[in-house]
């Protein structure tokens, strides 16, 4: 005997939209743009997500958290569908989410700088320091504490900080 799903797609989307990113808990999977779609087909909830980076270890945690959240609502029949197209981009991140990142101490991605200059571009200039707001900052490394971040230092307050890379 299969219990019918007592929630609408919109309600399920709302439950899932509250799941935080495991590494950056101030933003949710909805704000990040990982959560793409929710569908109910034949009494089965199909959640479509897209990876940020192909090797991002947080993806497995997103999946586990989605299943856990739905289980808590009594939904057992779940399918997670991973899509690769359209490819995830930081341009999907809302202004609100960018502001949350900045307050958390991560400099948010600068809009429209994705994919510019392959060789010797040396990263975006004038990345604002999330601590003091100065744009007198330096790229230390294209690769930071997670796949999605680069490492910068501020020349004014001398603090190192993470910059959320544009892709």
């Amino acid at each position: 005997m299969v219990t019918p799903i007592e929630y609408s797609k919109e309600q399920i989307w709302e439950f899932l939209s509250e799941i935080p990113d495991p590494e950056i808990p101030v933003i949710t999977i909805e704000e990040l743009g990982v959560l793409r779609n929710v569908d109910i087909i034949d009494n089965r909830v199909i959640v479509t997500i897209t990876p940020t980076y192909t090797g991002c270890p947080a993806m497995k945690m997103f999946e586990d958290d989605i299943i856990k959240t739905l289980h808590q609502k009594g939904i057992k029949n779940i399918e997670i569908n991973m899509v690769f197209s359209p490819a995830w981009t930081t341009d999907w991140m809302s202004e609100e989410a960018r502001e949350k990142l900045r307050k958390f101490g991560i400099s948010p991605p600068i809009k429209g700088t994705a994919d510019k200059g392959v060789l010797f571009a040396n990263g975006p200039k004038n990345v604002p320091c999330p601590n003091c707001g100065s744009t007198n900052t330096n790229l230390k490394s294209q690769f930071g504490s997670t796949a999605c971040k680069a490492l910068y230092t501020c020349n004014d307050c001398l603090e190192p900080f993470d910059y959320f890379k544009c892709i």
Binding site: Y53, S85, T89, A114, L119, F120
Partner: peptide, 27 residues
């Protein structure tokens, strides 16, 4: 092939960083 195309678009974003990083070190 849709999957090859989607994979390539996605990977290209990552590989761009890899290429930039290694090219800077070559110089």
């Amino acid at each position: 092939d849709e999957m090859i195309a989607a994979h390539s678009v996605k990977s290209l974003k990552e590989v761009t960083y890899h290429l930039r990083h290694s090219a800077e070190w070559v110089v």
